[in-house]
């Protein structure tokens, strides 16, 4: 197929080409400016963070060699006994892992309930009082900005060693994180059911119960499951500050150079986290699928 492409007259073409060049130049200029700012920021951060590439290059061999030294010594001939020896503490560790998961679970559930109760107060479409919305939001922000380990440190002092401070720390952090996400979900709901309940004489609680909750519940559960996944990872390090779970054994093994224990515990944590990821993802898919139907 031969079609003649009509060429525009020269002056018109020139104007368009100039315009294009100007646009490209403008974009390049912006990119260069952004790049310069980025490089300056990197330099400042590198100076601040005491980045020492020489030290890294000199010591980098320690990184793989650490993994080699924590790797178990397995021989094919004595594989079974070697594995047994490697996982000598399996009974204690699985118990601690179960504790870790339960710390995450109890903390997530408590936090999700608190977040559930607070999210309606933080939603501008349900609450008229702007002051109440503002105060609730700042409170949630405080709960999620202070890292859970810091809460755990404080709670260990107040409640003593053990899983209780870990559970509470996770619960508070979860309440903050989920409260925010929940409130965002609530603010995006359809208004019509709300108007329906109010126009047939419902009060505020009935409105929330019959118009809001049915719309948001599956999303809430999905977010809570995602948070549970994150909290299992968080609970695994709670033991670093004495707040229960497997972290205590891990940090001890690392500090005392019980190399094969480090790899055994790390492996157990990784497998557990992966299994929980897999499980919660399956449940979440089903939940979201249900909603689409």
């Amino acid at each position: 197929m031969q079609a003649a492409v009509t060429e525009l007259p020269e002056p018109q073409l020139r104007a368009l080409a100039d315009h294009y060049d100007a646009a490209v130049a403008e974009k390049r200029r912006r990119l260069a400016l952004g790049g310069a700012i980025l490089i300056a920021a990197i330099a400042a951060a590198a100076w601040m963070g005491e980045v020492d590439l020489v030290k890294l290059a000199e010591n980098f061999w320690r990184f793989p060699s650490y993994f080699i030294s924590i790797a178990p010594k397995l021989a094919l001939a004595t594989l079974w006994t070697d594995i047994n020896e490697w996982f000598w503490g399996i009974k204690r560790w699985t118990g601690l892992l179960l504790d870790t998961i339960l710390i995450a679970y109890v903390g997530t559930l408590l936090g999700a309930l608190a977040g559930f109760a607070l999210c309606f107060l933080a939603s501008a479409n349900l609450v008229r009082s702007r002051a109440l919305v503002f105060v609730t939001r700042r409170f949630l922000e405080f709960c999620r900005t202070v890292p859970e380990i810091v809460f755990a440190l404080l709670f260990v002092l107040a409640f003593g060693l053990g899983p209780l401070p870990g559970v509470l720390a996770i619960a508070i952090h979860t309440a903050g994180a989920l409260g925010k996400l929940f409130a965002e979900v609530v603010e995006n709901i359809d208004d019509k059911p709300l108007e329906g309940v109010v126009s047939s004489g419902g009060d505020w609680f009935e409105m929330v119960r019959f118009a809001v909750v049915p719309q948001v519940l599956s999303n809430f559960v999905s977010y809570a499951l995602l948070r549970f996944e994150i909290n299992v990872r968080g609970a695994a390090v709670m033991g670093f500050v004495g707040a229960g779970g497997i972290g205590q054994d891990l940090i001890e093994a690392v500090r005392k150079f019980y190399y094969s224990d480090v790899s055994a515990i790390l492996l157990l944590i990784i497998v557990t986290v992966m299994a929980i990821d897999y499980f919660t993802e399956g449940v979440r898919r089903r939940l979201i699928g249900q909603e689409r139907r």
Binding site: F63, G234, L266, I270
Partner: peptide, 15 residues
């Protein structure tokens, strides 16, 4: 699957 804190523990040993 490995938390940032655990990575930090490992890297403190290296650098």
């Amino acid at each position: 699957g490995v938390d940032t804190l655990i990575w930090a523990l490992i890297w403190v040993g290296v650098v």
